[in-house]
Nucleic acid binder design. Structure first.
Lengths: 166, 166
DNA sequence: TATTGTTATACTCTATAACTATA
DNA sequence: TATAGTTATAGAGTATAACAATA
């Protein structure tokens, strides 16, 4: 198989599998948090926990969402006392977000719970298989992290996607 | 490292990486289809293309969404002539969905386009790395396919997720 | 003038509950 | 009675455009 075909096979596999994994995890999170946390909210907390306090723009960039989207995502967590929001004294345009103590606790608990569910799902795998999965995901993550999506693709790029019946 | 720790490390990696991959792919799809297709619509087309005509319930089950959600997802594709909807003569409660010719064409084009973008993102990987990724995703897919989410988790399961400030 | 963030508006995805039609 | 699907309603996530405040 030529290298090009290998790449396409890999791309196909990613398209096929990855969204299905995400959906199941989202559903599990919603279920086991009794509807209190969505994936997006959880990911905000993940980021704040790991990287510490930061401003809206940086969070939005990391999550790959627009600034208004991020701006609307935050109040739901703030109103429950899980994150705090303060003007940055250095640059008063910025808003610094941070996990509160309650936020850290909720995050930790959610993470452990999600990990334990997923751990059960993959409990029949061998250590070697787990290791391979971690390695594969790391490679993918690094590759995707370097992608810069264009503002919009040229019309020529995927012309047939615009051929649908009116 | 004990087996348990390996499982948790793997679970952690999945939680961390997989949603980020999905988000980038969704964004790319939206961009390169000029906003005409969402991930969910695309996944419906993927399924219909591979498995042929089938009823709403089966589609909903595969996608992991509720029947009303699926029911609302379909008109957007039908109104553009990409899928057809017919009563099943054998069981008149059922509605059979199928890709139209235009739907097949749009799907094929979208798939190729998405594959080619992702192919570029991972173009620096070696064939061996690609192979490892395909294998890892296959294992994960199979493991996740066997998961049956409960109606709701017991309160004891993730109690701290309900400790947030009122 | 450029950047940060919010508000207004609109659309999609999602769910639950209540309903109709069919088996 | 049980199943397939729709409709009604509600809430979250998403975007673009227009705006205010700050640098």
């Amino acid at each position: 198989m030529p290298d090009e075909a290998v790449l396409m096979e890999c791309a196909h596999s990613i398209i096929d599998v990855v969204p299905r994994l995400t959906r199941l995890m989202s559903k599990d999170l919603r279920l086991h948090s009794s509807g209190l946390f969505t994936s997006s909210q959880f990911r905000v907390m993940v980021r704040l926990f790991r990287e510490g306090p930061q401003c809206l723009s940086r969070l939005a960039e990391y999550m790959g969402v627009s600034l208004p989207t991020m701006s609307k995502l935050v109040p739901g967590l703030e109103s429950r006392g899980l994150i705090s929001r303060h003007r940055d004294p250095q640059d008063r345009r910025r808003v610094l977000l941070a996990l509160t103590d309650a936020g850290v606790e909720a995050y930790t608990s959610l993470l452990e719970c999600t990990e334990s569910h997923i751990g059960e799902w993959i409990s029949h795998l061998s250590p070697a298989e787990c290791h391979d999965i971690v390695a594969a995901l790391a490679i993918l993550d690094q590759a995707f992290a370097q992608v810069e999506l264009p503002e919009s693709y040229e019309a020529e790029d995927c012309s047939a996607s615009r051929e649908e019946v009116a």
